[in-house]
Design a protein around this nucleic acid. Structure first.
Lengths: 129, 129
DNA sequence: GTTGACATTTACGTAAACGTAAACTAAAAT
DNA sequence: ATTTTAGTTTACGTTTACGTAAATGTCAAC
């Protein structure tokens, strides 16, 4: 299956068709159309949608995501263009790395607190028996 | 320095005073007041604010963050309470773990694309010389 | 060939998370 | 003592990211 309808994608990713159309409104996806005007999504469109949803889960705004998509999307042939793209990409990569280590710290903190709670629960149980 | 004014925190975290008051409006922070009504923030308030901002960076809503704060905050003495808290905490921990591995994947994808771009740039340069 | 599921555009509505302005009071600085 | 500067509440405004309804067209099934 190389093409998808809007409702297929809507079901697969558990989002509304409105949402998908909204992303198109914002210029994030650009599906082709049938003669009668129905949207047809290619595999690439689907991949982009996936990228959008992942970006959203990390708290990126649609505007930021749009910039990132252009990074993946544009046919950058010129040397200057390529250099700028690489620079921007490394910047974003740095941000992602920071988010990861930030999340790791949160994870550790949560684990510690949980350990503490579990310990307390154990003490309560030991005392109760 | 054990206490802070609203503008001190505002400057330290680079957010508006409105934002800080809004978090209070939502019940996320509860600073004490002077006789004349000025807000005074303790170290704990500051820590909570930090937590809020970190949560936001990961795309958690204020509502979710509020729940998480309660996890850190409440004095849960009862056994049932503790068990529920632990369960909720483990759920959140799972979510954090998912976010981390999700982010790692994004990181790898970005690295691959960057590698590709760098390769192309190198080829351009080699050809040019 | 008509019913029902799915599609379209247009357009107004909405919740979350603040921004901003007004009108005022208190604290700090000169 | 009087300007600044910083604080307060109240309340309406704004942006983002969609929800929702209306009015209409089309594809698939019976």
């Amino acid at each position: 299956m190389t093409h998808y309808t809007i409702s297929q994608l809507s079901q697969e990713f558990d989002i509304s068709t409105r949402t998908i159309r909204y992303y198109e409104e914002r210029g994030l996806i650009t599906p082709i159309r049938t003669e009668t005007g129905q949207r047809i999504y290619t595999k690439k469109d689907r991949a982009v949608l996936k990228l959008i949803l992942r970006g959203k889960r990390f708290g990126f705004s649609l505007e930021e995501i749009q910039e990132m998509i252009q990074l993946f999307d544009k046919d950058r042939t010129g040397k200057k263009q390529l250099e700028k793209t690489i620079e921007y990409g490394e910047q974003k990569l740095k941000e992602v790395n920071e988010k990861i280590s930030d999340l790791m710290q949160l994870k550790h903190e949560m684990e510690e607190i949980l350990q503490d709670f579990k310990q307390r629960l154990k003490e309560l149980k030991d005392k109760g028996e």
